[in-house]
Design a protein around this nucleic acid. Structure first.
Length: 755
DNA sequence: ACCTCAAACATTTTT
DNA sequence: TGTTTGAGGT
């Protein structure tokens, strides 16, 4: 590896300092400044200095980032790169915890509960405590509250010791939160299970309570590197601090302007106070953007300047000015989809670009639908990242539940899932009884299952339950002798999963069967993969996939496809042409974030992340109305659009937006009224039936008079019986043929007058 | 105990 | 709009 004379705008001396091997370093890296490259270089540099790779720990946030970086280092340094400890916080800590599980009285093959498992357990606990799970104690709310506590190192004991926290929940009507939290922690422990947050929390606990273990890992990890440091939470911070305490050879990389995970407990404080934690820290700023055009970089800087809480830095670029940022208004979400798809089609033709050069970024997963439809119509291949992952499909979770139970019989959630699937006539009441006995006698549910015949309340089903226990135990005896794939295949056949799914000849049934086969093939691949030094046993496999997300799943032949993903998922990526869509108030910024300045600033950082993904061409779009909860909702353009200096943007003209109607000639102007009326004329009748077309014009409704016959997009036909109020507050009482009398605010109502 | 259907409900972002 | 939950039937 030759040192480049010039890297990321650093002069040779600075570069030498960045690559230095001793002492704490913080690198503040603006968007597109090539921070991954710097991090990669630093690690490669260490290895080249004969520092053994197993002494280096590199922590990232996503599997993708870890894999990518490992790959790059491999090409520079060769096989030694395999010995690096590089991975996500969760993956690396899970590995450590597996080694040291006995120190915390966990089985080394502990289960990792995913979010569904956690919520399901919380729900059972809430029911057991006779609390209202529908309104007051919603499992998802309780879950995020617990997660929040854990991320801030607050265990149940610390919780009950804090009057403020107790008071907060009491005022929110969750007086029994502590009981749920405590029960949840107990149940997880009893089940030999850790949730995502436990992987961090327990690592912290391990190092805190066992100095000898800490010493061992301090000694091992002489060099520590942390990517995306701005997204670390209190718990991660604590672990890193402890690990780095011996050598202080710690290098963190981050960008406070791209901190978008505070909902997960991330706190910018960590990056802001790095220099206080390590008084001799060297700090570097990478401010040159190599990715985007001037227009994009400047506009982004302009937007982020609206935030108060940030480190001072100025991102700049040497690149061309490039095209202006185009802003597009659509009437509905479906039309937004069509405009974007059409625009991709055109850009491809004009500039000979590949599908993979494009990305559509949105705030929420549910927005993907209209873009999928539109792309499909134009036969543009696409790939959605995120959404329901392969591992969340029912048939996959069922199969995995069997494997989990075999590896860890105490796994309560796995047992509940499959004790009666395929059907064994063990119903809900029997399961409730089993849990009751388990709780009373302080055994695991599986213990009760294995002694089922001794419990007379179970009646005749006790024999069936007992038989189920025997079966699982027989599988367990195969753990030692069989590899993961052989065992899984045996189980799938024995239990009847394969035949059950195979006999179902519906379309979904066939796909379920195929998915199961795919999972089995995946396990086979895992077993036969000899590029990795890891064990090939079932526990390792389960631990692996528990931390996998959809984005990490086999990059099959997704060669040339348009990428669709949430902005969160797009972090760290770049595309020549990017569409940021759904820029509407209450959607982006999200409704939930309007409460506080901090939350709004995070949304703005999210927007900053979104637009800095673009290299050459950036398009923003919004719809004036959108389907939500099945009905049409009117929307206002996002405040973020207004925050961009006008000199960087242009309102797009709708050249050929509507292939469905074959509109070829360019529309003359782009004033709002004309756009709307021309769009109206050219609307394809897909979203709204032709009868109920989008003839919503406010001016018309101001002239609405008593006695007029009107048509509403949901309520059908009716007659105006009363008009009251003025201007925006003007309301009409309308007697609908099928829905009776309704009072509608005219400035919002989707009405048209029938002449 | 299981199936079917209708009503209610829900949408932030992820390891 | 799409999914999940509850009631009621078999």
């Amino acid at each position: 590896m030759e040192n480049p004379p010039y890297l990321n705008g650093l002069n040779p001396e600075q570069l030498k300092a960045v690559l230095q091997t001793e002492g704490p370093v913080m690198i503040i890296a603006g968007a597109g400044s090539g921070k991954t490259r710097v991090l990669t270089y630093r690690i490669a540099h260490l290895i080249r200095q004969e520092i053994p790779a197993f002494n280096i720990l590199a922590l990232t946030f996503t599997n993708k980032a870890a894999k990518e970086m490992q790959q790059r280092i491999y090409t520079i340094c060769g096989a030694e790169a395999k010995n690096l400890w590089m991975g996500t916080f969760h993956a690396v800590f899970a590995k450590i915890l597996r080694f040291e599980a006995d120190r915390l009285n966990y089985p080394s093959a502990f289960t990792i509960y995913d979010t569904d498992d956690s919520k399901s357990l919380i729900k059972t606990i809430i029911k057991e405590l006779n609390l209202d799970a529908d309104k007051v104690y919603k499992p998802s709310v309780i879950y995020s509250r617990i997660s929040n506590c854990k991320n801030n190192l607050i265990n149940p004991a610390a919780y009950i010791a804090s009057p403020e926290l107790m008071d907060y929940d009491f005022k929110a009507g969750r007086g029994k939160f502590y009981q749920i939290y405590q029960a949840y922690v107990d149940r997880c422990f009893k089940a030999g299970a850790m949730d995502f947050d436990d992987l961090l929390l327990n690592t912290d606990k391990l190092f805190r309570l066992h100095p000898d273990v800490l010493l061992k890992y301090q000694h091992k990890f002489k060099y520590i590197m942390v990517d995306e440091y701005q997204d670390t939470n209190v718990c991660q911070y604590s672990i890193i601090k402890r690990l780095a305490a011996a050598h202080e050879n710690i290098c963190v990389v981050g960008d406070d302007a791209q901190s978008i995970y505070s909902f997960r407990g991330a706190t910018i404080k960590n990056i802001l106070s790095f220099q206080k934690d390590y008084y001799d820290a060297k700090v570097f700023k990478l401010e040159q953007n190599y990715r985007s055009t001037k227009n994009i970089v400047l506009a982004a800087g302009h937007i982020i300047a609206n935030n108060k809480e940030q480190l001072e830095k100025t991102v700049w670029t040497d690149n061309d000015s490039g095209e202006k940022i185009s802003v597009v208004r659509a009437v509905t979400d479906n039309e937004e989809g069509r405009i974007v798809a059409q625009s991709i089609f055109e850009q491809k033709m004009q500039n000979q670009m590949a599908n993979s050069d494009f990305a559509i970024l949105y705030r929420t997963n549910s927005q993907s639908r209209s873009f999928e439809e539109a792309l499909r119509k134009l036969s543009v291949p696409y790939r959605i990242y995120g959404g329901t992952s392969f591992y969340q499909r029912k048939e996959i979770k069922d199969m995995i539940a069997y494997l989990r139970l075999i590896v860890n019989p105490n796994d309560e959630e796995a047992l509940k899932r499959i004790i009666n699937y395929p059907s064994r006539k063990i119903g809900a009441s029997t399961i409730d009884r089993l849990i009751l006995i388990a709780n009373q006698t302080n055994q695991s549910i599986f213990d009760v299952v294995c002694t089922a015949t001794r419990h007379s309340i179970l009646g005749k089903t006790s024999a069936t339950v007992y038989g189920f226990g025997l079966m699982i135990q027989s599988f367990r005896t195969m753990l030692e002798s069989h590899n993961a794939h052989d065992l899984a295949y045996h189980v799938a056949k024995q239990v009847g999963l394969l035949t059950t799914l195979h006999t179902d000849k519906t379309v979904e049934g066939i796909s379920r069967y195929e998915n199961l086969i795919e999972l089995l093939n995946g396990i086979k691949e895992f077993v036969e993969d000899d590029t990795s030094e890891l064990d090939k046993d079932l526990p390792t496999f389960l631990q692996d996939i528990a931390l996998l997300t959809d984005a990490d799943k086999k990059t099959d032949e997704d060669k040339d496809k348009v990428s669709l993903m949430t902005i969160h998922a797009s972090k760290g990526l770049e595309f020549p042409s990017v569409f940021v869509v759904g820029l509407e108030e209450n959607l982006f910024p999200s409704q939930m974030s309007l409460g506080s300045r901090q939350d709004l600033e995070e949304e703005r950082r999210l927007f900053y992340v979104a637009i800095t993904r673009a290299e050459k061409k950036l398009s923003l779009s919004f719809a004036t109305s959108r389907f939500r909860f099945g009905s049409l909702l009117s929307c206002e353009p996002s405040r973020f659009i207004e925050e961009i200096d006008k000199k960087y943007i242009e309102m797009a003209t709708f050249k050929g937006i509507s292939p469905l109607i074959g509109l070829k000639k360019e529309l003359p102007t782009n004033t709002t009224a004309q756009l709307i009326s021309s769009l109206k004329r050219n609307m394809g009748g897909k979203t709204l039936s032709p009868k109920l077309s989008s003839s919503f014009i406010p001016e018309d409704l101001q002239e609405l008079a008593i006695g007029d016959k009107v048509e509403h997009n949901r309520f059908g036909y009716g007659e105006v019986i009363l008009i009251e109020g003025e201007g925006g507050q003007k309301r009409a009482s309308i007697n609908f043929d099928d829905f009776g009398a309704k009072v509608l605010v005219l400035s919002f109502a989707k009405l048209r007058i029938i002449k």
